[in-house]
Design a protein around this nucleic acid. Structure first.
Length: 494
DNA sequence: AGCCGGTTAAACAAAA
DNA sequence: TTTTTGTTTAACCGGC
């Protein structure tokens, strides 16, 4: 294989096994020598993995189509079965237990130069992966921002260094113009539900593939977008554009208030902050919105945390205002629909055999008894390493739940979080649950607790608002609610 | 039963 | 003056 990784397609094995039989392609990529490992050999492996063969020398986690799909591949060099290691794997990660994962590949854009270095107009895109009863879309949380579950994206791509993604009115962080992930490929099935969906289950049902099924809440949408934006900052209009393109919420003609909801979330969620005018020069109208460092690191939590302390909740009117009643009902319906979709997705994800064995996890994670913690949305992170990383348990409570005075009074620097690396070779069975302590992937990474508070601006209007509502008791109840769950853990960027 | 998360809509003010 | 932007409140529904 050449260093040109455009043509890596077909099935690949994402592995942290020793690099024997592996030929370096370019940083982070290795190609199995096709002379030494035939298609048949790989097919055998895939079949054994799929069957849950316990005698395999390595652990495998299937994240790609079942072996039957292999037969459809044209064994041309461009479609050879290859091994890749996500870039940034550190040596120690290759020495212990192995746990490769099988992925579908898509053409991989050259990393160097970022998305602007588009080229090769005559890209050959991967063939559609045949339908298979055991194959369904990967978890939404494993898909990069804005991509439908039908898109075939090699996870290592998520870790590529990327140029700042967003140009105003550009299509998306991921779907920058000229990218092979642009509409020619990725958008197939996004806006065109009639196009055959390779990742669709064999019934042809749209249950799994329905983009609604991976719809996430506004706060998460905004978080995802801002996370990848240059300086994690965007204008309101850019946010509108992004949500319009990437959320079914904005596509629903009945939902005329989605922009209002966007603004509502921006205003009310402490994950987002308005950039002071002096920093947003050049913005003619409105201001810039930025992801707070804490939110960047820890993810976003529910906007509704600003609900008033129940003790201070104003009395409901004896007869609710009719207009509010109507809008409330609409909101309720929308929530119900969204939750039904989530439920469908959860059911779809519970397909057997897609998430398989895990043997060496305990060896790799001797100090952490619980399930692996994944970051809220690792896939768009610019960090070259295939994190997730996780800190241990000695974090302070979420800044979002700290009293303002308390925050101000804490001046001593906090102990930096200790981090522990987890890689994609972690048990995928946990992915099927989509709940990593506080990091619940059913909501795309909305977390129930935050990290340190050092970045938190005490004068954040929203917090002030919140604090003004929150009595001590109210705060305590929130904290105790928080504490009643699993130990708080916070994925972090390093 | 009551709280929480998520959503929608509205009212209102300020800015452009 | 109108439109956009930003903030806040209120209402509903489903889950827990």
């Amino acid at each position: 294989m050449k260093a040109d990784s455009w043509h890596m397609q077909g099935l690949g094995i994402h592995t942290n096994t020793p690099y024997d039989h592996v030929t370096a392609l370019q940083p982070g990529f290795h190609s199995l020598d096709s002379q030494q490992s035939s298609k048949e050999e790989w097919q055998q492996i895939l079949e054994r993995v799929s069957a849950g063969d316990n005698d395999l020398t390595h652990d495998y986690t299937i994240l790609g189509p079942p072996p039957a799909a292999i037969a459809a591949f044209d064994p041309s060099p461009r479609q050879s079965i290859e091994t890749s290691t996500a870039m940034g794997f550190e040596p120690q990660m290759t020495t212990s237990g192995s746990n490769p994962a099988l992925y579908p590949f898509i053409p991989v854009e050259p990393q160097f130069g970022g998305w602007t270095a588009t080229s090769e107009p005559s890209l050959s895109y991967p063939p559609a992966i045949p339908e298979h009863e055991q194959w369904s879309a990967p978890p939404a949380s494993m898909m990069p921002n804005g991509l439908p579950a039908s898109a075939h994206v090699h996870p290592s791509q998520f870790y590529y260094p990327q140029e700042p993604h967003f140009t105003s009115a550009g299509p998306s962080p991921m779907l920058s113009q000229g990218s092979p992930h642009d509409s020619d490929f990725v958008d197939v099935g996004w806006d065109q539900p009639d196009v055959p969906q390779p990742w669709l289950d064999s019934s042809g049902s749209d249950e799994i593939n329905d983009i609604d099924a991976i719809e996430v809440c506004y706060a998460q949408l905004l978080w995802r977008c801002l996370k990848e934006a240059p300086e994690h900052t965007m204008t309101l209009k850019e946010l509108y554009d992004w949500v319009r393109e990437h959320s079914q919420k904005a596509k629903d003609p009945k939902n005329r208030g989605w922009q209002n909801s966007v603004r509502h979330n921006l205003s009310m969620n402490a994950a987002f902050e308005r950039v002071p005018p002096r920093e947003s020069q050049g913005v003619k109208k409105g201001s810039l919105w930025r992801l707070t460092p804490a939110a960047l690191r820890d993810g976003v939590i529910s906007t509704t945390r600003y609900r008033k302390d129940p003790k201070h909740k104003p009395l409901k009117r004896a007869t609710p205002a009719l207009k509010r009643q109507i809008s409330g009902a609409k909101g309720g319906q929308a929530t119900r629909n969204a939750q039904r979709r989530q439920q469908q997705l959860r059911e779809a994800r519970s397909y057997p055999n897609l998430l398989t064995r895990q043997r060496h996890n305990d060896l790799r994670q001797p100090h952490r008894p619980g399930p692996p913690i994944m970051p809220p949305m690792p896939f768009y992170d610019n960090h070259p390493l295939p994190h997730p990383f996780m800190p241990l348990y000695d974090h302070p409570p979420s800044p979002y739940f700290l009293d303002v005075d308390d925050q101000i009074s804490r001046s001593a620097p906090l102990t930096p979080p200790r981090v522990q690396m987890l890689y994609d070779s972690q048990p995928k069975s946990m992915l099927s649950e989509f709940n990593f302590g506080h990091i619940d992937f059913t909501n795309g990474g909305i977390i129930g607790g935050g990290g340190e508070h050092e970045y938190f601006a005490p004068d954040t209007p929203s917090l002030g608002t919140e604090a003004s509502y929150m009595s001590d008791d109210g705060m305590q109840s929130l904290l105790s609610h928080n504490a009643s769950r699993e130990p708080t853990t916070f994925p972090v960027d390093v």
